[in-house]
């Protein structure tokens, strides 16, 4: 139903482009080299992280630095359950564990506003990492775990499916009254509450939905890495990257985070292979410049050029 409304509302050309992209990405592993498939998997992963982050933090303005926690939960789910259950079940489990963690964290912390929420969510990532490390050192007596490896194409398809489902959810949220409620929270939370929006519920549910997709992405990626430990799984970089990518792209439109993530993910790959020692440095410079000169991201820049383009 949603896809059809998307297609009728946008021009037929837009629909066709989406369809062609869908087909290209579905058939890609049949003819593209393995390197392309792996690169696209990484790009899809970043798009999933970024779009999920923007789903909640974009409209509400609550800057979550928790993605790495949800991503890590997904990774550890894959590591622990991977041997015992079928892959798809493992991945869905990864999503649900993240979902429930987000429900819990959300219920506890979403009353914190502004910078406190950002600090708290970041603390969460490090707390889980340190506790897990302690657990592994003292209870299980091992450091790190092995994850069952899965073929490139399987990983690609699962990540792709995850991304498509996420995008459908994201479009649905943006166009539904739920999306309107999210925006109203970002604009003025008090006024939203007094206009009948159950702000707590809307925030927690959206936070958890966004965590679900980050968790599934983690579970999928774990099968690529084969070896993980707490600091690989709960790497704070996976909290920062989605934020940077989303801000770089701009959170005003759905395609902002997508483009931002695609560009950054490709850039990461490019820089890591060419300038392995300078890539984080170049990243930092791009980030500072982006914040200084395009505070509304690529979306804002393009809209400025078009000037007054149809914003609904």
């Amino acid at each position: 139903m949603n896809i059809s409304t998307v297609l009728t509302k946008r021009s037929v050309v837009g629909g066709l482009v989406i369809l062609i992209l869908l087909i290209i990405f579905i058939t890609l592993p049949l003819y593209a080299p393995a390197y392309t498939v792996i690169l696209l998997t990484a790009i899809f992963m970043y798009i999933v992280l970024t779009v999920s982050w923007a789903l909640f933090s974009g409209p509400t303005g609550y800057m979550s630095l928790a993605p790495a926690a949800f991503f890590g939960v997904g990774i550890y789910t894959a590591a622990i359950l991977g041997m015992k259950l079928p892959l798809i079940v493992v991945i869905v489990c990864g999503g649900f564990f993240s979902f429930f963690l987000a429900l819990l964290v959300g219920a506890l912390t979403l009353r914190l506003r502004g910078i406190y929420f950002a600090i708290f969510t970041f603390g969460l990532v490090m707390l889980i990492a340190y506790l897990l490390l302690f657990w592994e050192l003292h209870v299980t007596g091992t450091r790190g775990r092995f994850v069952i490896a899965v073929g490139h194409n399987t990983v690609y398809y699962i990540m792709y499916g995850n991304l498509v489902i996420l995008l459908i959810v994201a479009v649905f949220v943006r166009r539904s009254k739920f999306g309107l409620a999210l925006r109203s929270i970002g604009e003025n939370e008090d006024a939203a509450a007094h206009t009948g929006v159950n702000v707590t519920l809307v925030k927690i549910v959206t936070f958890a939905i966004s965590a679900f997709f980050i968790g599934t992405a983690g579970a999928v990626m774990a099968t690529r890495w084969t070896y993980i430990d707490p600091f690989i799984a709960f790497n704070p970089l996976f909290s920062f990257m989605p934020v940077l990518m989303a801000i770089f792209g701009g959170t005003g439109q759905l395609w902002g985070p997508i483009i931002g993530a695609a560009i950054f993910a490709y850039l990461e790959e490019f820089l890591i292979t060419r300038f392995p020692y300078y890539y984080m440095l170049i990243f930092g410079i791009i980030l500072v410049i982006a914040i200084l000169y395009m505070p509304k991201g690529l979306v804002g820049l393009i809209q400025k050029w078009r000037k007054g383009g149809g914003v609904v």
Binding site: M63, I115, A118, F240, V243, L244, I247, Y277, Y278, M280, L281, F283, G284, I285, I286, L287, V288, I291, L292, P295
Partner: peptide, 15 residues
């Protein structure tokens, strides 16, 4: 935005 800019500085200085 200043928090994000500081992340940028972190990457730059560290590297």
């Amino acid at each position: 935005s200043s928090l994000l800019a500081c992340f940028g500085l972190l990457f730059i200085i560290q590297n």
